[in-house]
Measured scan of single mutants.
Amino acid sequence: PEDEKKAKEALKRANGDEDKAKEILRKLGVDPDRAEELLRRLR
Rank of each mutant, 00 (worst) to 15 (best):
P1V: 13
P1K: 13
P1R: 13
P1A: 14
E2D: 15
E2V: 08
D3Q: 06
D3R: 03
E4R: 10
K5H: 12
K5W: 15
K6S: 09
K6A: 14
A7W: 04
A7N: 01
A7E: 01
A7G: 03
K8H: 09
K8L: 14
E9G: 05
E9N: 07
E9H: 09
E9M: 11
E9P: 00
E9S: 07
A10F: 02
L11P: 00
L11V: 04
L11K: 02
K12V: 10
R13I: 14
R13D: 10
R13E: 15
R13A: 15
A14M: 03
A14I: 02
N15E: 08
G16I: 01
G16F: 07
G16W: 09
G16M: 05
G16S: 03
G16V: 02
E18N: 07
E18L: 14
E18G: 06
E18H: 15
E18D: 06
D19V: 14
D19Y: 11
D19T: 13
D19N: 13
D19S: 12
A21L: 04
A21C: 02
A21V: 03
E23A: 09
I24H: 04
I24Q: 04
I24T: 04
L25G: 00
L25H: 00
R26H: 12
R26Q: 14
R26F: 13
K27C: 07
K27W: 11
L28H: 06
L28M: 14
L28T: 04
L28K: 04
G29R: 03
G29H: 03
V30M: 15
D31F: 05
D31L: 10
P32R: 09
P32F: 08
D33Q: 13
D33N: 10
D33L: 13
R34G: 03
R34S: 08
R34W: 13
A35E: 01
A35G: 04
E36G: 06
L38H: 02
L38N: 01
L39P: 00
L39V: 07
R40V: 09
R40N: 12
R40A: 12
L42S: 03
L42V: 07
L42E: 04
R43K: 11
R43S: 08
